[in-house]
């Protein structure tokens, strides 16, 4: 989520002051998404330049009032309904490391996978601690934390399945390309990702 759209969402509830926007932003998402003060005010300026919000006359800063325009409301609804561009080819670092590890002689793949698994689960423990320590009715916080947890969880499950897959497949078959030479596996997904 961009700061832009978060601010538009806050203003869709009614006109607000700069300081108020900053505080509400922090109250709702700040625990997992820290933001510096300047970012709020510069984003508001840009939103105004683009005609998505209007401000009262007067000095820029915490005491200035802002409200959303019709264009701003439309931009917000559009954004809410636009699917995120997450369908990228799986080119993340983790995948690359495991693919590379398969080819490196003398590397214990299960050890490599376990190091990443432990690291991700430690990260999940820290997110879960945020949720566990918050009041149970803090739904907004739980939603934000869950989104991160599910994302990391997907990576852990991928590692588990990679672990099991590599256990079953003889090492040579996993690493070396069979003749005739295959195209790189990531490249073969091109048709799916676009």
């Amino acid at each position: 989520m961009s700061v832009r759209h978060a601010l538009l969402a806050l203003l869709s509830e009614g006109p607000k002051y700069g300081l108020q926007l900053r505080q509400e932003f922090e109250a709702r998402t700040g625990e997992v998404w820290p933001l510096n003060v300047g970012q709020v005010y510069t984003t508001l300026q840009r939103l105004e330049r683009d005609g998505l919000v209007v401000s009262e006359d007067g000095e820029d800063g915490p005491q200035k009032g802002y409200s959303i325009t019709a264009d701003g409301a439309r931009a917000l609804t559009d954004w809410l309904q636009t699917p995120s561009a997450d369908a990228q080819p799986p080119r993340d670092e983790l995948l690359i490391k495991v693919l590379v590890a398969v080819q490196v002689p003398g590397v214990d793949l299960h050890d490599v996978i376990q190091v990443h698994r432990r690291h991700l689960i430690e990260l999940m423990q820290r997110y879960t601690a945020v949720k566990a320590d918050a009041p149970e009715d803090d739904v907004a916080l739980a939603l934000v934390v869950d989104a991160e947890l599910f994302r990391i969880d997907a990576a852990v499950r991928w590692l588990d399945s990679a672990d099991a897959r590599l256990r079953r497949a003889p090492r040579a078959a996993a690493g070396r390309p069979a003749a005739p030479a295959r195209k790189a596996p990531v490249g073969r997904l091109g048709a799916v990702s676009r």
Binding site: M124, T128, A132, L149, R157
Partner: peptide, 8 residues
Amino acid sequence: HDAQLASW
């Protein structure tokens, strides 16, 4: 076997 539960 669920990492999310384990993270508690």
